[in-house]
Design a protein around this nucleic acid. Structure first.
Lengths: 196, 196
DNA sequence: GTCTATACCACGATAGAC
DNA sequence: GTCTATCGTGGTATAGAC
């Protein structure tokens, strides 16, 4: 017996997060209304509050989950005990691939931080810092081993991450270059930039 | 005889743009109301419409002016007939300096493009493309002359601009490094990245 | 050129029926 | 768990007095 209403919490919860992510990425957090999200999910606006305490919590949940998954994915993939050069190459390829696979939420992570409360902002910033430190430690190890020639590992960390994340702003599926080719080219530039 | 009301259009116009830029950069275009802008300027909300046709036109005016000034400033400063290596160094130092000097509107240019109408978006994108082409031509000239070793000048253009613009996300006045030192370090990394 | 006043609409969030 | 209905607020933009 199909019915129009009833219990769908296992479907509705993830669907709300998915639609919110899509709409926030497309139009911006402040420009998207709870009514729009509800319409995209197929429920009434009031029903959203069964799954989230308020609009900001919805954004924070998306960003927090993303950062946790980013760090966990890198740590699962990082070659243990590898030489700095191999570790750096792994990082470059991982960052480009992971960010292209999750372009929407990556975009959110860069654009919508200021819509978080002070406490929630600090949480996301801390996770971002944790991720950046993973790269910086590779650079420092390579510098100490004499295989990299980097004037400042802190600035090199920021420069490399900005450069890699920038791929998301112009890459289009089905364009001139495949993801693998883009990764090859960026790895070439990063390798040279650190003097390896 | 001072009077409370009267003609102030020569002051009010620029003041509206300045306050709008500050508020848009701080809170995001969609999150700032016309009432907030008016309050910061010291007029009533309705008075803003003497200077702008609507809220989006205010944003477009800021971005268009910025892009025009960016391109004009670079063309005024670009060393005429210089070697590719010198031209690239000039570009790197110019981009970092100009963007740090105008951090607010640069931030807007990256964050608020989606709040423009289709036509206005195309105008800004065209100007951005024009600016990027200035760099790409330097890279192509150096590649042709054999002084650069770049796998793909298009990607190198995007990578370098992303890397340089990224300085704006972390640089704080009075921090560990001066602007000049930051420019030195970034120039070192860019120079190596292009194989020079 | 700026003001007050306001039209009109959409917002986030909640209450209570089913 | 979802619905309808609604509260209170604040949004953009305009009208008309001064």
């Amino acid at each position: 017996m199909a019915r129009k209403t009833g219990s769908h919490s296992e479907i509705t919860g993830p669907k709300i997060r998915a639609e919110a992510q899509r709409l926030f990425a497309r139009h911006g957090f402040a420009a998207v209304s709870m009514r729009q999200i509800a319409a995209a999910v197929g429920v009434q606006a009031g029903a959203l509050y069964l799954y989230t305490s308020d609009k900001e919590a919805l954004l924070f949940d998306l960003l927090k989950t993303h950062m946790d998954e980013l760090i966990a994915a890198w740590r699962a993939e990082a070659p243990a005990g590898a030489e700095p050069l191999a570790a750096l190459e792994a990082f470059v390829r991982f960052h480009i691939r992971f960010n292209l696979e999750r372009a929407e939420v990556v975009f959110l992570s860069y654009m919508e931080l200021r819509n978080l409360s002070e406490e929630n902002f600090a949480v996301i910033e801390g996770l971002r810092k944790t991720y950046e430190t993973e790269l910086e430690q590779i650079l420092m190890a390579g510098q100490a081993a004499g295989v990299f020639l980097i004037p400042d590992t802190k600035l090199a960390t920021m420069a490399i991450i900005a450069m890699l994340t920038g791929v998301n702003t112009w890459y289009r599926e089905g364009g001139r270059l495949s993801r693998a080719t883009v990764a090859d080219i960026y790895w070439d530039m990063v390798r040279k930039a650190v003097g390896a």
